[in-house]
């Protein structure tokens, strides 16, 4: 049987987009959305694993509205062989998302490994990979900056503070949330994009997965723009005077120097 490598991806607002709040708890979605930046590294790592093994299939999976197909096409242009879109009408919390992804993966096949990004840049929840691992009973590592596959297991480096690392050994299947240091995504060429258009996107309605809801939930009840107006004041004078003023500000106003 072919080895199945799943990559969970998310369709998120472009990091350069200006976010406008709509209806008090959601955002105006008439902005450009793309593949979550950390997930680019996840897709790249999955494609590299397939290449390393010389076999296997990379399947990108995402939960969201029909628009998410665009992000799945990007994932396929970056190396996924096919994809699954679990259709829902709105943003769901990570508790529900993990259940939906688990159910859709179960329906599709038996994972050898699941990759995802260490967090999404919209909800910044940092937890879906752990919930997914718990649902499957697979071990999980996040913030992974190095992945070494072995026979039925993997050794990973997980980034900690001040440049430190924890090295973990996980049995496979496992779930890995990858960080930026793991690889350098190669952005798709035009032929990659054309090829991705012909790849399969299997659409499943989330209702058809018969997910048992959790008694727990997290919901965004209000959202407000976070724009800080700062009044920029210039520190003038000769460089020596500027530095003296700066030291005075640090000591007397910010009170961060002794």
């Amino acid at each position: 049987m072919d080895m199945k490598i799943y990559v969970c991806v998310k369709h998120v607002p472009d990091s350069a987009a200006n976010i406008a709040v709509k209806d008090g708890n959601t955002i105006d979605d008439k902005i450009s959305f793309l593949l979550n930046p950390y997930d680019e590294h996840a897709v790249t790592e999955a494609a590299a694993l397939k290449k390393h093994l010389g076999r296997g299939e990379v399947i990108a999976i995402s939960l969201g509205t029909e628009d998410v197909e665009k992000t799945l096409r990007s994932a396929m242009a970056m190396g996924a062989d096919r994809s699954i879109l679990v259709k829902t009408d709105r943003q769901r919390d990570s508790i529900f998302t993990a259940r939906a992804l688990k159910a859709a993966i179960d329906q599709d096949g038996s994972p050898a490994i699941i990759f995802t990004g260490r967090e999404s840049i919209d909800m910044e929840g940092m937890q879906t990979m752990f919930r997914l691992g718990a649902a499957f009973g697979f071990p999980v590592a996040s913030n992974v900056i190095k992945f070494t596959p072995e026979k039925n297991s993997a050794t990973v480096e997980s980034q900690t503070e001040g440049g430190g690392k924890n090295i973990y050994h996980l049995s496979m299947p496992c779930v890995l949330g990858v960080g930026r240091g793991i690889n350098t995504p190669s952005y798709p060429t035009f032929p990659d994009v054309v090829k991705a258009r012909k790849k399969e996107v299997k659409t499943i309605d989330v209702k058809d997965l018969n997910i048992t809801p959790s008694p727990s939930s997290m919901s965004v009840i209000s959202l407000e723009p976070f724009a800080q107006e700062r009044r920029a004041r210039e520190i003038t004078g000769t460089p020596a005077e500027q530095v003296q003023t700066l030291v005075n500000i640090l000591r007397n106003e910010a009170k961060v120097l002794n």
Partner: peptide, 19 residues
């Protein structure tokens, strides 16, 4: 309360559950 959408908004999140 936490920042959402890459620090461009502040969201209030309601949690429910036994913990």
């Amino acid at each position: 309360r936490t920042t959402l959408y890459s620090g461009k908004t502040i969201g209030t999140i309601q949690v429910t559950g036994s913990h």
